[in-house]
Write a protein that binds this DNA or RNA. Structure first.
Lengths: 192, 192
DNA sequence: TCTTAAAAATGACCGCGGTCAATATAAAAT
DNA sequence: ATTTTATATTGACCGCGGTCATTTTTAAGA
């Protein structure tokens, strides 16, 4: 028969999460070790994997939380009316995503859901992000020839490209903001 | 003082590469194990890492070779004159890149060079790809308002997005080709 | 209160990528 | 030929993510 979730379970999971985010705050995501997390949380290694399928599942939760916090702020902001404002709004989200190269790679890898029934927390943030900015393009004179969702997909594609080039020594002489300006003008203001 | 490369060295490297590509041909990239490669090549494990910085360096070479083969065919093809032809031309390259999800993720991770002096073989293929298609946009009536290289960057950004969605259960009801058509029309034929 | 079964926690163990001091081999110097 | 030095190879070893049979804890049923 089915049983309710024990209080102990929630406590253990909370201990693991706080231990992990403390360690991340200290040394970043890349160098996080499962053994350090369980040591700090005061549980056995096996317990970790009873709560998370793998290490990345934990990282996904922590990173998704950061992205969602940035999206929360986006949601209450005024709609942008021009390319400059748009880029300024997107900037904090892009900052989070590119805080570490390791983080950016992990985000990309989890940005699309593999299984219909198992949409991960990062894939969720991407869904939320694109719906949010699609809303912006429903009003105003942004690409009136296109479906707002398609406009949003384009913005996302270019943003990802700009972030990737941010890590590229060949291109990072140009600041990400400038590159985004070029992209957004070309995508959102064709022929102008 | 500097010495010439020994014949033995080249032989060993060749043995490792053929062993690896044989194994990949049999079971794909994801399940390739360094220990199996050295076993098949008849060398010790340490030898592997004397020839490649890490496992991914080997995979990079094998995958870059596949991409370059596809680009070789692109190079001798006729320039596309419309969106449909363009997509047909890009298709083989996209097929290679999405042959395995593991491969696609690895490609993305190596698509931009981290160190100026250490541009990897996959980053090279991306450089080659974008110069190649930028050439296409120098003639014809593709976005005359934009620099051809910028047009090419847009195509690349959308192509990557389309490939990523290919692995996404939420979107893969729509074939990649159809998604690319939507993207390319919006990017290359705005307002039409 | 005692029994019992479901759920949670444990830690020894494994797989596999990667390291490095020791050894072997090639070619230059004598 | 013999010594010397640069280069290539070796395999025992390590780090770390992840597994699983066993033990411990919880709470329902008697």
């Amino acid at each position: 028969m089915k049983r309710a979730v024990q209080k102990r379970t929630l406590e253990t999971r909370a201990k693991l999460l706080t231990a992990a985010s403390d360690l991340v705050a200290g040394g970043g995501y890349q160098s996080l070790r499962v053994e350090e997390v369980v040591l700090r949380a005061g549980v056995a290694k096996g317990t970790f994997f009873a709560h998370f399928n793998d290490k990345e599942a934990l990282l996904e939760q922590l990173i998704a939380a950061e992205i969602n916090a940035a999206l929360d702020r986006l949601e209450v902001a005024d709609k942008p009316t021009n390319v400059n404002d748009l880029i300024k709004l997107l900037d904090p989200v892009m900052q989070v995503m590119t805080s570490e190269r390791y983080v950016f790679d992990l985000i990309l890898r989890h940005s699309s859901a593999t299984l219909l029934d198992k949409v991960g927390p990062i894939a969720d943030t991407f869904g939320r992000f694109i719906l949010l900015i699609a809303e912006w393009f429903k009003t105003g004179r942004w690409r009136p020839d296109l479906d707002p969702y398609l406009v949003a997909e384009g913005v996302q594609s270019f943003a990802i490209n700009a972030m990737a080039l941010n890590f590229c020594a060949l291109h990072c002489g140009v600041p990400t903001e400038d590159r985004m300006t070029t992209y957004m003008r070309a995508w959102l203001e064709p022929g102008q």
